[in-house]
Write a protein that binds this DNA or RNA. Sequence first.
DNA 1: AGCACGATGCTCT
DNA 2: GAGCATCGTGCTT
Length: 187
Amino acid sequence: MKIFPRHFYALPTLIVARELLGARLVRILDGQRLSAIITETEAYIGEQDLGCHAHAGKTKRNTVMYGPPGHAYVYFTYGMHWCLNAVTEAEGFPAAVLIRAIKPEEGAEIIHARRNGRDTHGPAKLTQALGIDGALNGVNLCDQAAGLWIEAGSSIPDEAVTIGPRVGLYTVPEPWKSKPWRFTFRE
DNA sequence: AGCACGATGCTCT
DNA sequence: GAGCATCGTGCTT
């Protein structure tokens, strides 16, 4: 299948977040090809977005978001969880799409085993399921070198997409807290 | 099915 | 030192 090229990720973040629904997230783990369909995403867009990690400017943690599009921004949170984003828009503008849920396909037995039989619906659940952690922060998603990339999948009609506010931004002020920047593919 | 809470440690002020 | 783009358990309905 076709790996999404750099110019895809350079598009506006809301477009990328919408178009990643139905796409295939691929991970090579211990020589095995695992893949899953992306079913939920969220957009984080620029320093003015008070829900975005870049809201207070460039720091050591969020540096990758300021780099070129098409790279993985993997961050650690709540003392134990890793979350995966795809960096978007032009280099120098900090924005990314958080991958929030997947539906396992290739290697589904292995993926489920890595989750001890539990689900893969949740940003930290899918990174655990696919063996994604800080070692992959900053890797290029536009080639296969790091064993992590995204391929074009089946296109999802608008009727199957639910748009709503982002999750978990408890202390983020309005209007950012309620921006409808979350996209869910419901079957 | 839904809510409340504790776990756990890195990041930035 | 406070806060965190979460998860799993355990309890209530």
